[in-house]
């Protein structure tokens, strides 16, 4: 499978395309460099089983280790609550996307604008369009996706990968963040 072709074949944006996260260190470096990261999690994450663990469990570990606030976009909230994890905010995907384009928005804690938005688990085409909105209208924001498919409108995206390779990458990122 081509690494950096849009997963949905026709969803081709144009000249500006995401850089590939080929190794977990790249993602780790980006996350470390960010002063105000935020993670936006869609309902798709409960649908993925990753070697016996649900993707959601990886993400909870990831967010906790990296101290990244999590915004849950939809009914997935319940899954987080069931695991004893309270998201930083509940907000529909287009609403959080819209706020991220406002340079004057100081985030959920009112402190400062976010500089890195990590997306995962939205329907592919919806994540695609929202990332396009951010690519064009949030010039100061970097975006990253953690899905196992290439999202051309992000600043950084995983390549199209098999679940197996993807798990290795995700684990690598979580491990790289230390304890």
């Amino acid at each position: 499978m081509p690494l950096n072709e849009s997963w949905q074949t026709a969803e081709i944006p144009g000249p500006k395309k995401a850089s590939l996260i080929i190794k977990p260190d790249i993602a780790d470096a980006m996350i470390r460099r960010a002063k105000r990261p935020i993670m936006i999690v869609g309902h798709g994450i409960v649908e993925y089983d990753v070697e016996g663990l649900k993707l959601i469990d990886y993400l909870i570990e990831f967010a906790t280790k990296a101290h990244i606030p999590v915004v849950v976009t939809a009914s997935t909230n319940r899954e987080f609550l069931n695991r004893g994890f309270t998201p930083a905010a509940l907000m529909p995907a287009v609403d959080i996307g819209n706020r991220l384009t406002d340079p004057g928005w100081k985030g959920f804690d009112g402190k400062d604008a976010y500089d890195l938005a990590i997306f995962v688990g939205l329907p592919y085409y919806m994540e695609w369009t929202i990332l396009s909105g951010l690519k064009h209208f949030a010039p100061n924001l970097k975006t990253m996706t953690l899905d196992c498919v290439y999202q051309p409108n992000a600043s950084w995206s995983f390549p199209n990968s098999t679940i197996k390779d993807w798990v290795v990458n995700l684990k690598g990122i979580v491990d790289g963040l230390g304890d």
Binding site: G14, K16, N98, S132, G133, H136, F137, P139
Partner: peptide, 24 residues
């Protein structure tokens, strides 16, 4: 206020184009 979600980075509506509208 409109929140735009461009479906394409370009405009191709006339022969001046295609025009690349990325990066402002």
């Amino acid at each position: 206020k409109p929140f735009y979600l461009p479906f394409c980075d370009l405009c191709c509506l006339c022969t001046y184009g295609k025009c690349d509208l990325t990066g402002q």
